[in-house]
Design a protein around this nucleic acid. Sequence first.
DNA 1: CGTCTATTTGAATGTACTCAAAAGCGGTGG
DNA 2: CCACCGCTTTTGAGTACATTCAAATAGACG
Lengths: 192, 192
Amino acid sequence: MHKQLLNDISGFIDLSKEEQDSFFSLLQPRKLRRKQYLVQAGDACRYECYVLKGCLRQYYVDESGSEHTVMIAIENWWTSDMYGLITGNASLTNIEAMEDSEVLLIEKNDFEKLLSLVPKFEKFFRIKLQRAFVAHQKRIIENISMPAEQRYINFTQQYPSIEQRVPLKYIASYLGITPESLSRIRKQLAGK
Amino acid sequence: MHKQLLNDISGFIDLSKEEQDSFFSLLQPRKLRRKQYLVQAGDACRYECYVLKGCLRQYYVDESGSEHTVMIAIENWWTSDMYGLITGNASLTNIEAMEDSEVLLIEKNDFEKLLSLVPKFEKFFRIKLQRAFVAHQKRIIENISMPAEQRYINFTQQYPSIEQRVPLKYIASYLGITPESLSRIRKQLAGK
DNA sequence: CGTCTATTTGAATGTACTCAAAAGCGGTGG
DNA sequence: CCACCGCTTTTGAGTACATTCAAATAGACG
């Protein structure tokens, strides 16, 4: 069961049968419909979430009401409103399914229990977070140093075939540009 | 000794006297002159670095030779080229002292040793990385959703009095704008 | 004091934005 | 199965913001 997730984990730490079982016992499978929220800004973020199937987006809504895509999580990604999760405060972002999806949830308390009961998971998430750190720095560098066209090209390489799954307007908002600008950039690139 | 660092750590984990000592034994104090490199892009990143005093900047140099400031690390911050550190590959960024500085270094191998010998440090760095995760997401949101003027205002609030310490051109490159644009933004704001 | 670097200012250019409207696409119900 | 509706994407025109390049001014350091 949950072979996907186990594969992911065993790339970094070795779990005994018992550790696996106690981990799995904390996981709550859930199906999400397209457009269904996993987290809404303002609510507490109660879960860490692993995507088995489908596609979620995390987005921030600014004062003027515009949405800004923080993260696109596909199969085998972890997602949550990290701010809400670690502070216990209201979440800053929304997380919504863009396709009918299947996820595994770990409740905040269970997550903390897991970390203290099976310290190997401290290592696992530390490593995951280090990689996220590098990925975030990369995205920041791109944002501050590259024009939108180049950021779009990089995006399509990082998420191959995602354009067939996700409305372009969300990609635009991930890149920090308007849908109109993305449309023009794509037209531009098509003519090459 | 190293009270600063101990304070920081004890906010998150409790260390026994022995654990403290074994931790401190791994730390290498180093003084850096202004403009001295701690890491150069292309070299291996051998250290995790804690800033006791002074101010460092981490920056990326693109193909056209422009510098882009990824991070500004002042007192009590940790810094390193995380990519180089976790992969063992050549560093992607430079880290340079902007003031004469004092830092504590942990060699890559010692760092890994520490994590396996004293698992509490897994927790400590996991928590640090979670906070960095949130901070990075915040910066990404700002980059994709706010005009340069607002990003600059936020920056001055996040790093109060840093403008007295750091040349403006590095702040501009942190914000992803040219020094000329920052100059105009500041002029603009001054007239309010 | 002089030199080197950082910052400011100006003018022209370019990139991305807004607002408005048209075209395309997908799903639903008759 | 087609027609319609709502949402996404494209296109156009005008505007705003930030850039480039060049030059002047100001500051810091030896």
